[in-house]
Design a protein around this nucleic acid. Structure first.
Length: 453
RNA sequence: GGCGCCGUAGCCAAGUGGUAAGGCCCGGGACUGCAAAUCCCGUAUGCAUCGGUUCGACUCCGAUCGGCGCCUCCA
């Protein structure tokens, strides 16, 4: 599985992160279904914006070494930030995280191969792909080649192309840019060539799944197909999977609208990053998602319900309501939920429906457990299912139930105050614990439960 | 101009020919010293609008209105 990774010149925004969360969902679903996944995510560390931002402060006569060093300083910084964000969101690390700059020789060889096949041509030190040489060009994006108008805004530096729709494979160096040596003179790789080169190098001539955001369908993925299939002479990717965009508060995210957020912004506003993960993954990946803080709050509350249920199953039953009129076999009920969950996930990652299967199970078993306590064996079976689902959603893990001495002492103090019917003191201690993130639950049998809240 | 998507309760959202899942919020009740958690009850005679096909349509077809995307750098 190959996923188009970040361009590391700044903080990733939550729209970028939605795509990486979708890819993580896809990957984890395969893994949970016992498939081996070999995952490659590229790090784009040479590109126009990176060059712009990293070179601005350098003098005009800076050496190529200096320019490379400045570029590397910027990309290494934001690569680290990016990986931290993924970790915060519980996104699994890819097996391969190739940096584009580490594969320049591979890209050059690929361009040479295309040149040898007559699919590439050189103009003033740059190399272009001849789209006319590949009949299937445009198939992925459903573009009508006749209908592709010659661009009204052809880049000033690319006027020498044979056709306005041909794209660049290798860019001749311009003054003030870092460069590499190549058969065509000093230059740097085009944006599209890196994914083809690294994907073929690390995953081979056949890739099962390639994914990215919908905006990459054209031209990026279309061009990747052209490059890889032009070189290989056969289909390269079996399945393309694209995640939809994220809107914010009903509008397209933009800095001028003030609705442009990074993960750090959300955390600073008090959001639980895992709730953000849940909010994203509880919507279908192929639908535009409107992010809102109200939605984030709803996600937090939904998660509370699942986590509270998990903790209830980890503990012992407290039934006391007499016989349950609609007694059902919990293990059979659980199996129904598991089947519904997997049927939904197998149906193009229908997460809203998969989660619904979990919630109806929670409602049913909560009600039953109120009346006829589930046995230890049944509770463990439920927990195993929650773990199974959590291996995909990564939002309701088992949490170690260890209390420090101070918390235990406070709980004991409150119990004594309660025994003495000193309600004011009991409430005061309960508030104090709440401020420490501990929520108490008084049980029917007089014991006190607690959870992190 | 070409290609494509979407419009389901206050909010999010599944369903896509057989009579509206689920979550959040909200109201009433039970339990509780009060809470919390949990439970019970309630909350869309209707799925943008108007036509058509059908025994039957939210689901199919057509039109209209509204929102969005791509065809150019973008997750």
């Amino acid at each position: 599985m190959y996923t188009c990774g970040p361009t590391v010149y700044n903080y990733a925004h939550i729209g970028n992160l939605r795509t990486f969360l979708f890819q993580d969902l896809l990957k984890r679903t395969f893994q949970a279904a016992r498939h081996d996944v070999r995952h490659c995510m590229n790090i784009t560390d040479v590109e126009d914006k990176i060059i712009r931002d990293s070179q601005a402060a350098l003098p005009a006569d800076a050496s190529n070494e200096t320019r490379h060093a400045a570029m590397q300083a910027l990309t290494e910084r934001f690569t680290a930030v990016f990986l931290e964000d993924l970790e915060t969101l519980q996104v699994q690390r890819a097996d391969y995280l190739p940096k584009a700059t580490a594969y320049i020789p591979h890209m050059i060889r690929l361009v040479q191969a295309l040149e040898a096949k007559g699919l590439a041509y050189v103009r003033e030190g740059s190399v272009y792909y001849r789209i006319a040489g590949l009949p299937q060009y445009g198939c992925l994006a459903h573009l009508d080649r006749e209908g592709m108008q010659a661009g009204t805004s052809v880049d000033a530096d690319e006027y020498e192309r044979d056709s306005a729709t041909d794209f660049v494979l290798w860019k001749a160096a311009k003054p003030g840019e870092p460069w590499w040596d190549s058969p065509w003179g000093p230059g740097r790789p085009g944006w599209h060539i890196e994914c083809s080169a690294m994907g073929m190098e690390l995953l081979g001539d056949r890739v099962d799944i390639h994914s990215g955001g919908v905006d990459l369908i054209f031209p990026h993925h279309e061009n990747e197909i052209a490059q890889s299939e032009g070189c290989l002479g056969h289909q390269w990717v079996n399945h393309w999977v694209h995640g939809e965009f994220l809107m914010v508060e009903g509008q397209k995210m933009s800095k001028s609208l003030g609705n442009f957020y990074t993960l750090r912004d959300l955390i600073q506003k008090g959001a639980d990053p895992v709730a953000f993960r849940y909010a994203i993954q509880s919507n279908h990946y192929r639908k535009v998602l409107n992010f809102s803080f109200e939605g984030l709050r709803a996600a937090e509350n939904s998660l509370k319900r699942i986590r509270a249920f998990r903790q209830r199953m980890e503990g012992e039953g407290q039934a006391g309501g007499g016989p349950w009129k609609e007694a059902q076999a919990p293990l059979a009920r659980l199996e129904l939920a598991r089947e519904a969950f997997w049927a939904a996930m197998a149906d193009d990652l229908n997460t809203p429906e998969a989660l619904a299967a979990i919630f109806t199970l929670i409602s049913d078993l909560n009600a039953q457990d109120d009346h006829v306590a589930l046995t230890r064996e049944e509770r463990d079976a439920v927990l195993a299912f929650l773990d199974e689902a959590d291996s995909i959603f990564a939002a309701w893990p088992h949490e170690d139930a260890s209390l420090d001495l101070e918390v235990e002492a406070l709980i004991e103090a409150r119990s004594q105050a309660k025994s003495a019917k000193n309600w004011a003191e009991a409430d005061r201690v309960r508030d104090q614990l709440k401020a420490m993130g501990i929520v108490l639950e008084d049980r029917k049998d007089g014991t006190v439960g607690w959870r992190k809240g």
